[in-house]
Write a protein that binds this DNA or RNA. Structure first.
Lengths: 356, 356
DNA sequence: GTGAAAGCGCTAACAG
DNA sequence: CTGTTAGCGCTTTCAC
C-alpha cells in the first residue's frame, strides 16, 4: 500500500542505505544521486515510517499528555498551548484523560510508557506524594507537571497560594470581612490546598478568621440546601465568596440567582483560573488568572529542554517554574457599602507580600 | 532499560516464541510453561512494546483525531466522548489541531497516516469538496467526520438545516419578525451554510425575508461599528439574533451590553451548539443543542465498526448519521410585546416540517 | 560515495 | 507443545 524505503531504492536504482542517507544526511551523498533519490521519493510520494525509526531506537517524537478532563476549559487551554509548540516542532501528542482517578492515572502512564513516549506532560490530583511519579523518576522517564503545586517535582504552575492571597486581599480591600472559600469535590488536590492557604493568610493578616473550605457539588443542578444555608442565613452570612475555580464560580452564581440573591449586590464572587469565558458572563466574572495556554507552552519547553539532554536537575533551574498570575477585575465584586473593616494594617494592595 | 521479550525468554528459560504465545495465545501453551513465563513477565515487569507489533503489520490500535481548535468547547466535548469509549477499548488517541487551516489539515492527515493510525475522526471546514478526503477514500484509510454536514461522506452530525429551522421557528413563534443571522469568520463552513439555509427556510415559510448572514469577528473585544449599526440603527433593526454558534452568541451578548442594549428586552439571542456553559450565563443562553459528547461517541463507534471490517458502505447504514438536536429554552429569548406577525401559517411549532 | 548486513521488538509460519 | 527463522521499515556500522 504505502511505499517503503525499499520501493524508493528500487525505483531510484540505489540501495536502501543510500535512500536513508539521502533523507537523514543529505550532505554525505553525491548530489547527482541525491537528486535521483529525491525524484523517486516524490514520484512514489514516500514518507519514512516513524515506526521503523522508533523501533531502531531512535527518538519516537511522541509525547504523552495526561489530563484530568477536557470538560474544564482550563485543561483544554493548556493542551492547546502544548499542541501549538510541540506539533510545530515535529512532536506528536498522545492524549489520555483520567477523570481525577488514580487508577486511570496509572493506566495512562503505563500505556504511554509502552508507546515509548519521550516524555510526559500531566496534571495529577496530588503531586507531592505520588508513587507513580516516583517511579517515573526512578525509570528516568521525563515528565513535567502542569498546575500541580509542588516543590519536589518538575512543574509549571502559578503560585497558587500567593495568587489566592492576592485575590482575597482584593476582596478585603473592597471592605469584605466575612469571606468564605468554596471548593469542588477535589478539595484534596494540591492546588486547592494551596489556594486555601493563601485565603487563610490573607484573612488572618487582616485580622479576620478564615473558615475551612466549604465543599460544593459541582455537578448538581442546584446548590445543596446545607450549602445555601451557609451562604444566606443569619447576620453572619458571608458577603463574598472565593471559589477555587471558575467553573465552580459559575455554578455557584447560578445557584445564588435561583435563590434570588443578586450578584454582586448581595454577594461578591471571585473565581480562580481566568477562563476566557468568564469575561463573557454577566456580570463578567472577577477571577484570579492563570496563564493556562502559557503554562502548556512552558511545560512543553521544559520537557523539550530536558529531552534535549540538558539535565539541569542539579543546575540553577528550580524544579518548580512559577508563572505570574493576575487578578482580573470583574463586576462580580462590589465594594461593601459600609466599609466594616479598616483593620487593613498593610496599606494598599501593592504593599509588601508575606512571602516572595 | 525496559525489558524486552528476549529478557523474559532468557529469564524464563524459553524461547521468545513461547513468550509471545504465552501472551497472545495462552491456550496453545503448556500450563506449566505458561506459569513460568508469566512469573518472569511479572518479575521483570515486562509489557510488550506496541512498536514491535505495529511494525509487524499488526493493528496499531491508534486512531487519529483532527480538530479545528480546542478553544471551542464543542470540540473538547466531542474529544471527551471519543476518548471515553476509545481508550476503554484499548485504542490510543493521537491528537492534532488545525485552526481551520487547510494546509494544517493536510499536514495532520499525512502525519497520522505515517503513524499508521487505523482510522481518523475529524472535523474539517468544508467536507463536500475536500480533495484530502477523496484521497483518504482512495487510499482506503477509514475516517468519520464529526459535525460536518454532508451526505457524501461518513459523518456524524445533527441536521444543521433542520436544527436551525426549528430554532428560528421558535423565535418567530415568539413574535419576532426581523431576525438576523450572525456567523463567525468561518461562514464558509458547511455547517454554517446549512444553518443559514434552515434560517432562510423558516423565515420564508413565515412570509419573512431572510437576510444574508452578517459576519462578525470572533476575537475582537468589541463588536465592529458597522455590525453594531446593523443591529441597533433605524426602525428596521432586528429584534432577534440567531448566532451560528454559542461562543459567537456570548461575544455578541457582551458587545450588545457594552452598547447598552438589554437582553432579552432589547434583543433576543439564540445560539447554536448547546454548550453546557451557556446555561450558566445570565440570562441562560437559549440554544440549539447538538449532543457533542454523543457525536464523539457515535463517531468512534462508527469508526470501530468499519475497522472491524463490516464494510457496510453499500449496505443499509447511510453515510451520514444524524443525531437528534434539541432547542434549549433560555431567558435570552423574550416574546415580542406586540405580536407583529400573525403570518404564521403553520400553526404550532410541532407542525409538519418541510423536510424529514 | 555507495552497498551489504545486522538488528531494534515482535509475530507467524514452519519444523521438530 | 516448543524452538528456529524470517521479516515488518528503518538506521547504522563496516567494507568496498
Amino acid at each position: 500500500m504505502t511505499p517503503t524505503i525499499k520501493d524508493v531504492a528500487a525505483h531510484a536504482g540505489f540501495s536502501i542505505a543510500t535512500v536513508s542517507r539521502s533523507i537523514n544526511a543529505p550532505h554525505t551523498v553525491n548530489p547527482v544521486t541525491l537528486d535521483k533519490v529525491r525524484q523517486s521519493i516524490d514520484a512514489l510520494n514516500f514518507r519514512p515510517s516513524p515506526l521503523g525509526r522508533q523501533l531502531r531506537g531512535e527518538r519516537t517524537r511522541l509525547i504523552g499528555v495526561i489530563l484530568p478532563t477536557l470538560a474544564n476549559p482550563v485543561f483544554a487551554e493548556c493542551l492547546q498551548g502544548i499542541d501549538e509548540l510541540a506539533s510545530a516542532q515535529g512532536y506528536r501528542l498522545m492524549l489520555m484523560t483520567t477523570q481525577y482517578d488514580v487508577e486511570r492515572e496509572r493506566h495512562a502512564i503505563e500505556t504511554l510508557r509502552e508507546h515509548r513516549v519521550e516524555g510526559l506532560i500531566l496534571t495529577v490530583a496530588d503531586a507531592d506524594a505520588h508513587p507513580l511519579l516516583d517511579e517515573l523518576d526512578r525509570a528516568g522517564l521525563l515528565y513535567v507537571l502542569m498546575h500541580n503545586d509542588t516543590m519536589r517535582r518538575p512543574s509549571v504552575s502559578v503560585d497558587n497560594r500567593l495568587a489566592a492571597y492576592d485575590g482575597v486581599r482584593r476582596l478585603i480591600a473592597q471592605g469584605h470581612r466575612r469571606i468564605l472559600m468554596l471548593a469542588g469535590s477535589f478539595a484534596a488536590s494540591d492546588r486547592a490546598r494551596q489556594r486555601h492557604l493563601g485565603y487563610s493568610e490573607a484573612m488572618q493578616q487582616a485580622g479576620l478568621v478564615p473558615a475551612p473550605a466549604l465543599e460544593v457539588d459541582f455537578n448538581a443542578d442546584e446548590l445543596a440546601p446545607s450549602v445555601l444555608a451557609h451562604l444566606t442565613h443569619g447576620a453572619n452570612r458571608p458577603t463574598a465568596l472565593f471559589c477555587s475555580n471558575d467553573l465552580l464560580a459559575m455554578v455557584v452564581m447560578r445557584g445564588l440567582r435561583r435563590a434570588r440573591l443578586r450578584i454582586p449586590q448581595d454577594m461578591s464572587i471571585l473565581g480562580f483560573d481566568g477562563l476566557a469565558m468568564g469575561e463573557l458572563l454577566s456580570p463578567p466574572l472577577a477571577s484570579i488568572c492563570a496563564p493556562n495556554r502559557e503554562i502548556g507552552c512552558a511545560a512543553w519547553q521544559r520537557l523539550l529542554t530536558r529531552i534535549g539532554g540538558d539535565d539541569d536537575t542539579c543546575g540553577a533551574t528550580p524544579l518548580a517554574l512559577t508563572l505570574p498570575h493576575s487578578v482580573r477585575e470583574g463586576a462580580t465584586i462590589a465594594a461593601l457599602g459600609t466599609i466594616e473593616a479598616s483593620t487593613d494594617r498593610d496599606g494598599p494592595l501593592t504593599a509588601a507580600r508575606p512571602y516572595a
